[in-house]
Computed example of a mutant assay.
Amino acid sequence: MSQKDSTATTDLEPHWYAVYTLPRHEKSIADHLVRQGLETYLPLYASTRKWNHRIVQLDLPLFPGYVLVKIVITERARVLSHPGVIRLVGFNGIATALPDGEVERLRSVLSVWKAEPYSFFAAGKQIRVTSGPFANFEGRIIRRKGKMRLVVSLQLIQQAIVLEMDAAEAQLARPLTLVDNPGRSAAL
């Protein structure tokens, strides 16, 4: 069997793909795809919100902006036909299947454990420490051995330290603006 033949065989097997959606369209897209007979997975979490002096319980997407769908790649046009779908997630314009078993593992974990979204801190991002002894310090994230580490630079003395910390103690830092620092001429 040639390499081209094996590729054709794998194209005929269904795989899980991530569908990138317009904001707040995840549920309608998942419903639409199910009505088309496609298998979807949209993990939700319960969130309590206060609106107009009342408390509301909502089921929100665990991964905002994404719906997972199991299709044979030749069925992508059925998925892309919904006006709220932007594209299938991939590289260089080619849809990329999620690793085998990853969605099933996610389903089994979420059937037992509660989860909710959390800020994704990427290495190199500027963050501000929000609690603990280093509260209000700013620095850049580095990761080593799976632990979040923060480099805090003390520019006045041209020194830096590395702190190991929990991601819950930090938030993404926003750039200073003229309102924050009137002595500067532009956002830093």
Score class of each variant (00 low, 15 high):
106 L>D: 01
47 S>W: 14
71 I>N: 00
20 Y>A: 04
185 S>P: 03
115 A>M: 02
159 Q>H: 09
52 N>T: 03
42 L>F: 04
21 T>F: 04
114 K>L: 09
10 T>Y: 08
161 I>H: 01
82 H>T: 05
167 A>H: 11
116 E>G: 09
49 R>V: 15
113 W>L: 15
34 V>R: 15
81 S>R: 14
95 A>K: 02
50 K>L: 12
169 E>I: 02
16 W>N: 04
61 P>Y: 02
99 P>T: 10
89 V>I: 15
80 L>A: 04
57 Q>C: 10
5 D>W: 02
176 L>F: 15
142 I>R: 14
117 P>K: 10
139 G>K: 09
116 E>M: 12
58 L>K: 11
10 T>Q: 12
161 I>P: 00
63 F>T: 08
129 V>Q: 04
125 K>N: 12
139 G>R: 06
184 R>P: 01
35 R>T: 08
157 I>V: 15
7 T>L: 14
72 V>M: 12
133 P>H: 06
72 V>H: 12
91 F>W: 13
97 A>I: 03
130 T>D: 04
83 P>C: 08
134 F>S: 13
157 I>W: 09
66 Y>I: 02
36 Q>Y: 05
44 L>K: 07
28 S>M: 04
10 T>K: 13
1 M>V: 15
33 L>W: 04
99 P>C: 06
139 G>Q: 08
57 Q>R: 15
141 I>F: 06
52 N>G: 10
145 K>C: 01
33 L>K: 07
49 R>D: 07
105 R>N: 12
184 R>F: 08
122 A>L: 12
1 M>N: 15
111 S>Y: 01
14 P>H: 08
100 D>P: 12
53 H>V: 06
27 K>Y: 05
87 R>P: 00
17 Y>S: 05
46 A>R: 15
41 Y>C: 01
150 L>G: 05
75 E>L: 13
130 T>F: 02
52 N>Q: 13
119 S>N: 02
69 V>T: 03
162 V>H: 10
16 W>S: 07
104 E>G: 01
36 Q>W: 00
11 D>Y: 02
132 G>F: 09
131 S>L: 03
92 N>T: 07
141 I>L: 09
67 V>I: 08
1 M>G: 15
112 V>S: 11
104 E>M: 02
67 V>R: 03
78 R>V: 01
62 L>F: 00
97 A>E: 11
166 D>T: 07
180 D>T: 14
104 E>D: 13
54 R>N: 11
151 V>D: 01
93 G>N: 08
145 K>I: 00
1 M>K: 14
128 R>K: 14
83 P>R: 12
108 S>W: 05
75 E>C: 05
51 W>Q: 04
116 E>C: 08
64 P>F: 00
163 L>S: 06
12 L>H: 13
67 V>F: 07
127 I>C: 11
38 L>K: 03
131 S>Y: 05
182 P>E: 04
127 I>A: 07
188 L>M: 12
116 E>V: 06
9 T>S: 03
139 G>E: 03
162 V>E: 15
9 T>I: 11
11 D>A: 10
